[in-house]
Amino acid sequence: MWNFIVQFFTWWNGQTMGTRFATWRFGKRVGEDEFGNVYYEGGMSSYGLPKRWVIYKGYAEASAIPPGWHGWMHHRTDVPPTKENYVTKEWQKQHRANQTGTPQAYRPPGSLAVAGERPRVTGDYDAWTPGN
């Protein structure tokens, strides 16, 4: 019952009622990633491409899609990572969710959230002053 109430009144937690109905009606499950997000395909978009969507485990956060699935979702490849031996490239970093708004967010030196002074301007830049 709680899941029904959450899905009925929120769009950011898992899936909405509309997405649940569309998934039941048209969706074909393609696979699941290591985070528990489930990927579907079904129907055609107005561009003539198959519709693809994800039902997030927990909050709907687009940065929670790993690189292999990101390519499939955006039609960069027709083969989902579950149907191929997708191996991350050596230059790819380990996936991290978006940290904006959390204590782990990046805060450069001199920002209001970090103690310290902002680095002095160097090079050929001169700050504008009135009367110059």
Rank of each mutant, 00 (worst) to 15 (best):
M1E: 00
N3V: 01
G43E: 11
N3L: 00
R52K: 05
D126P: 05
H74D: 15
R96C: 07
T10P: 02
N37V: 12
T122A: 15
T122M: 05
A62D: 13
N98W: 14
E41A: 06
T100Q: 05
A115I: 03
Q99T: 10
G27L: 03
K93L: 12
V6W: 04
Q104L: 10
R25Q: 06
T77S: 05
V38L: 04
Y56C: 14
G131T: 12
H74I: 07
G36D: 08
Q7I: 00
T122Q: 08
F9R: 06
H70V: 13
E34P: 03
E61T: 14
A105D: 13
W2V: 07
G14Y: 03
P108L: 08
V121N: 03
G116H: 06
S63P: 10
P67R: 11
S45E: 08
R96A: 09
G131C: 06
E90V: 09
A64W: 14
A113F: 01
K57E: 15
E32C: 08
P119D: 05
Y86I: 04
G101W: 04
V121T: 07
A113S: 06
H95R: 12
P108I: 15
R29M: 10
V121D: 14
A60M: 10
T10E: 03
N85D: 14
D124K: 09
G36F: 02
K51Q: 14
W72K: 05
D33L: 08
R25T: 00
P119E: 04
D78R: 07
W53D: 15
H74L: 11
I65W: 08
E34Y: 10
D124A: 10
A22N: 09
S46R: 15
N3Q: 03
E34N: 11
E32W: 03
G123Y: 06
T10Y: 11
I5L: 07
I65Q: 09
Y47P: 03
Y59Q: 07
G14A: 00
W72N: 00
Y125P: 13
A60P: 00
H75Q: 04
